[in-house]
Write a protein that binds this DNA or RNA. Structure first.
Length: 629
RNA sequence: GCGGCCUUCGUCUAUCGGUUAGGACACUAGCCUUUCACGCUGGAGAGACGGGUUCGAUUCCCGUAGGCCGUACCA
């Protein structure tokens, strides 16, 4: 038996997470939110607190560096503490951007960030936040205790609607890892009253196909995941990407590189031969473009910092630092004028107003590169959360052999979207011992803190168990509808559909209570209903045939007249006849029930036999019994 | 090679320095029973290895091993 998920009570248990001790390069594992330690209003005690990470203390920024938003600017406030912790202080990072950046080609304004402990003005802020903003004195930080999680959620949704995105590349179907990423993004957005956007990363024209786009959209819809607005095509935003890249060159943050592919190859070979990491050597970084060779179209490379380290604050992975010496001047705009992925994501996430990125941890190292672009642009980076990948049952990378099927394959295998969602949400995320989570429950409980850091394996058996659970729980008519819908997606579906008369549909529905207890997938449900589709004379499977031996036939022959004499053809009536007969003759019930089952269904296994007889109806049932004798 | 991430029953996971290391799936013994299921009651089953720190480590640190990711004018 499962434990059902507990929804948060008014006072949720406080889960405290302390950072791992400092040491080495890894600074802290910032999985817990430091704000759990109530920040003080005094400058002194705040200064003693945690000194790394995205939260800078208000007093750290000199007042004149904090230019408050003015008309025409947009304010973003990102909560950096758990919004569902009543009684906790909230620390909010504000970022100011030029208004109307979304989709515009205007040169972006430099973003400014300033963090504040949630002060008393927050309430005022909500009343009429934009107008009041210029009046805020960021140094006069007072405390404000948020009274309830709902207050918090409400406040936050007013200032900073959460925006997540799912950004698949349409080079194949929506595989299971992508489906989970989409689920997490969807859940996170729902949880915070925000929205999820869908962006198709189709800048690779060679590999992107419309069929894949359709499959992804179809898969998401089937899974029950919705997004806001039309899917955004990354490819169609190429001009914007190019503009931003050129702006970066103009600002001296990027430069043209005239290296030929051959030259780069040589560079790599050479580095390899000398046991060095294959990195671009920056030969055009400070070179005068006048020296450009004739006829070579340049690519644009970002000027990456040469020293120090690039630090990522990740909601799942903690604080991760990458030495800048390992990050070279990578290309942001190809020589043909198209953007690279690294550049396009940054520009798009920014323009789309994404506040929280949730993606596979294969992107973790990319994030350092993207941070370099954000920094060069002066844009605030959305918060990131990198979730571990899903592996196949053997622990190896997911391949076609096991889990790397498109979600449509799961549909064809007869899995319910609700079961797949439940299975997926528990793959890499946990909330105590909760196993069975309705969509509402997972929406209420999902958080980034519950995500683990180790990869998980895909386990069909568990999925099946969950699916069986949801099938048993489903409404009978709903299941009939689901199976009928499934016929569109399976081989022989059309054939079965042709046989599916209204009468059989009715029988299917009537038999459903017995059927659904025995099925783990919709396919098994259909299979279990096979006896409804069979036409006399039935073909018996091996075990059924052996049940219809001399003794079996004799039992049937003996019971037949009594059944024929029944005034009412109900399960109770037939059962009564058979039980009476068994008592009279001293036969075990099974000695009669099993041959009956074989005769009625052609198999040795079925729902309770008397229910089967009732569903079949008097004439059909008696006919099948006579056939067997 | 370089950089990053990971490692608790077979699998998914809980654990937040003191627990008989908990739950779920699977497995298994039994009960229920007209078959198969469902359900119920039991059972077996885990901290990769080696060093630290500590009165005490699954938990914190270091190392080793193994796995994964990245290192493209792919995304």
């Amino acid at each position: 038996m499962y434990r059902s998920a507990k929804l948060p009570e008014p006072e949720p248990t406080q889960r405290r997470r302390w950072p791992r001790q400092e040491g080495g390069r890894r600074v802290t594992r910032n999985r817990q939110q430091p704000q759990l330690q109530a920040p003080r209003a005094t400058t002194k005690s705040r200064a003693r607190g945690r000194d790394r990470g995205q939260i800078r203390r208000a007093n750290q920024s000199p007042p004149d560096a904090i230019a408050l938003p003015t008309a025409g600017e947009r304010l973003e406030a990102a909560p950096t503490s758990r919004p569902d912790h009543p009684g906790n202080h909230l620390i909010v990072t504000f970022a100011v951007h030029a208004q109307g950046v979304r989709g515009s080609k205007a040169s972006p304004s430099k973003g400014r960030e300033f963090p504040l402990t949630i002060p008393s003005f927050f309430c005022e802020l909500l009343g009429d936040h934009v107008r009041r903003l210029p009046q805020i004195d960021v140094n006069a930080v007072a405390e404000h205790r948020v009274a309830s999680s709902s207050e918090c959620t409400e406040l936050l949704s007013m200032t900073t609607p959460v925006v997540t995105r799912f950004a698949p590349s349409p080079t194949g179907f929506l595989h299971i890892g992508g489906a989970r990423t989409a689920l997490f993004n969807w859940l996170y957005a729902k949880r915070h009253g925000g929205t999820m956007l869908l962006r198709i990363e189709d800048t690779d024209r060679e590999r992107s196909t419309q069929a894949a786009v359709d499959a992804i959209i179809d898969g998401l819809k089937w899974l029950g995941l919705s997004w806001e607005g039309e899917p955004i095509s990354q490819f169609q935003r190429a001009d914007r990407h190019a503009d931003v890249a050129r702006d970066l060159v103009a600002a001296g943050k990027a430069y043209y590189c005239y290296c030929t592919p051959e030259e780069l190859n040589d560079m790599r070979e050479h580095a390899k031969a000398n046991g060095l990491p294959p990195r671009y050597d920056g030969r055009w970084r400070d070179r005068d473009p006048k020296e450009a060779p004739e006829g070579v179209k340049p690519a644009i490379r970002i000027k990456a910092p040469l020293e120090g380290e690039t630090v990522i604050e990740d909601a799942v992975q903690g604080t991760v630092a990458f030495p800048n010496k390992d990050l070279d001047d990578f290309i942001i705009l190809r020589s043909d004028g198209t953007p690279t992925y690294m550049h396009a994501v940054v520009v798009d996430d920014h323009d789309m107003g994404v506040t929280q990125i949730i993606r596979g941890d294969d992107h973790l190292t990319n994030t350092a590169r993207q941070r370099i672009i954000y920094d060069a642009l002066g844009w605030a980076m959305p918060k990131v959360a990198h979730i571990p990948l899903i592996h196949g049952p053997d622990g190896a990378k997911l391949s076609k052999r096991h889990g790397a099927l498109g979600v449509e394959a799961y549909r064809a295998m007869g899995y319910l979207p609700v079961a797949l969602r439940n299975y997926l949400v528990r793959l890499g995320w946990a909330h105590g011992d909760a196993e069975i989570l309705s969509t509402d429950e997972m929406t209420a409980l999902f958080d980034l803190e519950g995500i683990g850091r180790s990869p998980s394996r895909f386990d069909f058996v568990k999925l099946e168990n969950l699916n069986g659970h949801y099938i048993r729980q489903s409404d009978d008519a709903e299941l009939v509808a689901q199976v009928i819908a499934l016929l569109e997606h399976i081989p022989q579906g059309a054939e079965i559909k042709a046989k599916l008369t209204d009468k059989i549909k009715g029988q299917f529905l009537a038999a459903m209570p017995g059927l659904k207890e025995r099925a783990k997938t919709l396919l098994e449900l259909l299979d279990g209903a096979g006896f409804l589709f069979s036409v006399r004379p039935l073909a018996y499977d091996e075990k059924a045939a052996s049940l219809l031996d001399e003794a079996g036939k004799a039992a049937l022959a003996a019971i037949l007249p009594r059944l024929e004499a029944l005034p009412d053809w109900t399960a109770a009536a037939t059962e009564d006849v058979v039980r009476t007969y068994a008592t009279e003759t001293g036969l075990k019930l099974g000695k009669i029930a099993q041959p009956l089952r074989a005769a009625a269904t052609g198999r040795s296994m079925s729902p309770p036999i008397f229910d089967v007889l009732a569903v079949l109806g008097r004439d059909e049932a008696l006919g099948r019994i006579r056939d067997a004798i």
